[in-house]
Design a protein around this nucleic acid. Sequence first.
DNA 1: CGTTCTTTTGATAGCTCTCAAGTCGCGTGG
DNA 2: CCACGCGACTTGAGAGCTATCAAAAGAACG
Lengths: 251, 251
Amino acid sequence: MNDLTLPKSRKLPLTPYGSTFSLRLCGVCDVGGICMDDKHREQLRNFDAYVEHTGSYPEGTYLFREGDPLTSLAVVRTGTVKLFVVDPSGAEQVLGFAQAGEAIGLDAIHRERHGCNAVTLDTVSLCQLPYAMLNRLTAAVPTLHRNLLNLLSKHIDHTNMLIGRYQAEQRLAAFLVLLSRHAERRGLSATRLRLGMPRTDIANYLRLTPETISRLLRRFQDQHLVEIDRREIRLLDRAALGELAHCILRD
Amino acid sequence: MNDLTLPKSRKLPLTPYGSTFSLRLCGVCDVGGICMDDKHREQLRNFDAYVEHTGSYPEGTYLFREGDPLTSLAVVRTGTVKLFVVDPSGAEQVLGFAQAGEAIGLDAIHRERHGCNAVTLDTVSLCQLPYAMLNRLTAAVPTLHRNLLNLLSKHIDHTNMLIGRYQAEQRLAAFLVLLSRHAERRGLSATRLRLGMPRTDIANYLRLTPETISRLLRRFQDQHLVEIDRREIRLLDRAALGELAHCILRD
DNA sequence: CGTTCTTTTGATAGCTCTCAAGTCGCGTGG
DNA sequence: CCACGCGACTTGAGAGCTATCAAAAGAACG
């Protein structure tokens, strides 16, 4: 991993509040669209707070690193962010991928320092709520705190699903189905997916090896479950994939 | 698993607020001792809220089940609670064990329904904060909300450590070290541990099999790292165990 | 058009599981 | 007090899944 892309604590650039582009996205944002709510926007103004809609970060940008102080709660607007830690032996452990509408940095709240690294896998833009505002905003915007609790709680619920001892096949199927659902919820195609990350990162995230991922994708293709062209994936039989992932997704 | 110990939604008995016994424990409670703080206690009274210090539940009692509405946020006072889900094939997946000072039911917040089952592994007593109070309390007790966020955030941080692809040996070592630290933090012996759960549950939690646990414990014993008598464990060389678990615990 | 990274494919090894049997501890009842 | 039965735990042998190692093919980039 190239860690020289950016100096350690890059100051994130500010851009004027709001844009037609972000308006569309905020409707499906995990934070609950609080930024665009007129009533709340007014309250935010009272605090001199801006939700910063940042411009684009190129691939390989470190948004934060383990140990960095928590400066802002960010939500991915476009692109894919990889969250990972590096264990003492130097091995990378991918904790997850954040895409449009997903918040990053939540695990940093209790220490006010980030517990993992966040790097962009492609061109990424963010919405950011300065962390210093958070406590001040709480009193004025009750729903914000509620939303935060929900986000964290949901995150725990979600990881509970992924920590089980499942087979590689089930893991990968679940991964694909979740990607598909995420795209669907964001108004994109549920069958034509674009993997935002290399096989190595998928493998690491699923606690498998790239070779295993490759072999499984081939098998899925042979079984006419998917059609693969590089990082473009067509889900031919999401039902069957869902069946494979049934024990993980539990639905 | 015997699931007939209690009817499905047992009404938890109320007991008068406070006791000398719980006073000792609240100092190390993960919720931050908010219950016993005189200032906050007064505020709690204003809301007609009682933190219920419940009596003891016998082994095998279901404190809640998956899908149950979230009625109260509970903290374990004494004993061990097993948290687990049951996947569609009927297989149990242990998510964790909660001991003195640890909160249970946090993952239920975003749905207001429990996402897992909680069963007592021995005689257990709890502190409970009725969930209906939570939102009302927030405004009056700012630190409470903060504590909640911290708890959830910490939980995420914690699971991040456990979801990696590690070897059985490292997993078990980490498990023992964490148990030891927990005991130490609670003022108990850091070297003489009592496992509150059977091997099968440890195995399930660590995504291993009881046989593997058994073999590993034997190996640890042969290497003079531990001394085992049934569920009593003496850590003879915590440093060495910590070394084994280094890649997981990262300290 | 070479360099580099990603991905694929094959052969082999290893860790942990599975299956099976046996041991141990403990509560029950004779 | 002892026999019995049950569940928890241990131990052994073999199988299976996935990792590891190795190599080559394929894209991406300048």
